[in-house]
Amino acid sequence: MSAAPLIETKNVELFYGSSRALKGIDITIKEKLVTAFIGPSGCGKSTFLRCFNRMNDLIDNVRITGQCLIGGEDIYAKDVDVIELRKRVGMVFQRSNPFPKSIYDNIAYGLRLHGTKDKSEIDGIVESSLRGAALWDEVKDRLHSSALGLSGGQQQRLCIARAIAIRPEIILMDEPASALDPIATVKIEELILELKKEFTIVIVTHNMQQATRISDYTAFFYIGELIEYDLTTKIFTNPAKKQTEDYVTGRFG
């Protein structure tokens, strides 16, 4: 586990109006590993995740202080192009949100957005992304039918395919399996383990078994604070803090 650091935050604080939702968070997330954020609802883990692709910019009255570096660059610097940033940092949401377009166009959209025009190149990337998301065999015969006709689990894998099609460095996942049944969840988890060969993955999850199954590092958040951050095996077997132990053993939540 001696990978290079990719995301680094220094004293990140986030305010909704006057209330402080994140309280001075320092974390270093390493390349090509899966890092899980766990913690009770409202602890700020999703909010923190959205700092990495600046999705919090969309909310009014949000103010962020501190430093957030990705690959050594401050992503909140004035001259940062948010579009370039989001190309490097992809995201998969809690509820699958394919566009009301065909399966093919869902993936091609991001490619066209970033200037890929060549039809055969797009065809190739659509196929490789769908294969990468373990969806190709299920949809190869109906690429041009609506994405909304897929099952929930398939839709979520399509969203992952859409995210990896533009080759980001990092994929943020906000509880990607929480709306899925156990079988679909297993597929997503297998996919994540496959994806970490190429991408750095940060995943928010409510499911602690899921965190133990897929993540290398785990960060435990509680009311806007990062309580403990360590190797997943350590967090779940021998946590340093009492609060962490209480949470992972199910004594509170």
Binding site: M55, I83, R86, C159, R162, I166
Partner: peptide, 22 residues
Amino acid sequence: PRSYVQAALALGASKWQTAWQV
């Protein structure tokens, strides 16, 4: 749905592209 907008923005679309294309 806001989720379409979020999906497009997270893919790196500008606000205008999102409004017009999605």
